[in-house]
Write a protein that binds this DNA or RNA. Structure first.
Lengths: 102, 102
DNA sequence: TGACAATATGTCAGATCTGACATAATATAA
DNA sequence: TTATATTATGTCAGATCTGACATATTGTCA
């Protein structure tokens, strides 16, 4: 398990349901977090391929550097919607998004 | 273009940005809506495969029938997060979710 | 046809997410 | 090392999403 996944999963920020498993997360919750994390990592990859800093990407997205940092780190306050919109803004297409989450 | 896609795209419900194109949606916004719609359709497919009514699925999700209906119809008030969580609750895995959005 | 089941639509209070800001931590180069 | 650039973290008001409810519409079957 790599550093980012560990960080996101250990995060106390996630509001979890009632079924207790590893660290209080259900299997579905785990899968959801892993999927989000995959998109986070894809975002970092695409940003770097485009040779943009987080601040530059933030400007393009009409967002802020801090939010981009949160996106790339799988922060619980970031939605999959925002990740997908950001990936699309970086030129990712359906296929590469689909590939990222597998 | 099938009925559902047309409905979602024509929907006045979507809050759109500044770049005007077909019906006032940018290319990225279009792609995002299409991706959401693909997940909507996958949800309907999975629900029917499980032989559940919208009300039964709603109960499993701790949600409501009306929200399930909105999910399946690509309503703008439904997030990709909710669609993905619902698909996972229906037993869909990463691969089938990825396949759905291609 | 009528009765019932299933799905769709509209609304809203409460919950969650977002951009923005400040500031801390870490990298990179001189 | 010291600057400077880049990334990370914490917070919060305003925006968006959610579950729930009422109700309308559509489907199904006798």
């Amino acid at each position: 398990m790599d550093k980012k996944k560990k960080k996101a999963i250990e995060s106390k920020g996630y509001r979890v349901g009632s079924v207790d498993e590893f660290l209080g997360l259900s299997a579905d919750e785990m899968e959801y977090i892993e999927l989000k994390l995959s998109l986070s990592q894809a975002l970092t990859k695409h940003r770097k391929k485009s040779k943009l800093t987080q601040a530059q990407l933030a400007k393009r997205l009409k967002s802020s550097q801090s939010r981009v940092a949160k996106m790339e780190n799988g922060d619980p306050s970031v939605s999959v919607d925002l990740l997908i919109k950001s990936l699309l803004a970086l030129g990712a297409d359906k296929n590469s998004i689909a590939k990222a989450i597998i």
